[in-house]
Simulated scan of single mutants.
Amino acid sequence: MISHGEGFVIRHRSGRYLCSDIRSRGFEGGQPILPLEFCWFLVGNPFAAPFIYKAEPYHRMLATPEWQDVADQFDVVPGPGCAVCGERGGIMWGEEGGYRCDKHKDRNPCAIEGCKRTRAAGNAGLASDQYLCGEHWRKYVPPRSRLRRLYHAHFRRGKREGWTMKRNRQFHRFWDFVVRVARKRHNGGFIDEAEINRIMGWG
């Protein structure tokens, strides 16, 4: 999973992105050409917003007197990119948090930051937390661990009792927890049995 693409963009608190254009007020033949002026507007597509490679120029711009009345409505955020490879440009697929380049338009990445392994999105749709690749599954949910045993127990109960709406909700809640544990362990965190019980409401 790649959390963002290149550079930085400016996002409004409405969730839209700051975009700019250059325009002229117009002039008639023989008249001096008037200075060009910037026109600012908001767009829903973050890939339409201009991005820069360092955030500081945007921070300086928002700190100028011209922006002081509205600067608190904007944030400088990492530019979007394909969640699989980080690329931007060309045709981009998906929505906020699930963008894909044309090459990966029907693929989901491993949930671990920086991993570029993928699998087909299928009926699950585009998401960045539905899959752990084989390497990270074995590393963070190892065989005979409590998490691995609980994972298999969910499937045994589902096969025995049927996959009801309640069973599906329980499994998705458990899977979200597995992903959180894997990501925390990947980032050097440690989760003991007591914390597993607390988070899952078992103890």
Rank of each mutant, 00 (worst) to 15 (best):
I2V: 05
H4F: 09
G7I: 02
R11S: 04
D21C: 08
I22A: 10
R23D: 13
Q31Y: 06
L34N: 11
C39E: 15
C39N: 12
F41C: 05
V43Q: 09
G44T: 06
G44S: 08
N45R: 08
F47E: 03
A55I: 01
E56Y: 04
E56K: 12
A63L: 09
T64Q: 14
V77S: 04
G81S: 08
G81D: 03
A83P: 00
G86Y: 04
E87R: 12
R88C: 06
G89S: 05
G90A: 05
G90N: 07
W93N: 11
Y99Q: 05
H104P: 14
N108E: 07
R119L: 10
A124D: 15
G125S: 12
S128H: 10
Q130V: 15
L132N: 02
C133S: 08
C133K: 03
G134S: 14
E135R: 05
R138V: 04
K139V: 06
P142M: 07
P143L: 08
R144F: 11
R149C: 09
G158N: 05
K159R: 15
K159Q: 15
R160H: 06
W163V: 12
F174V: 02
D176R: 13
V178H: 00
A182R: 02
R183F: 08
N187M: 11
N187P: 00
I191D: 02
D192T: 02
E193L: 01
E195D: 11
R198T: 10
M200G: 06
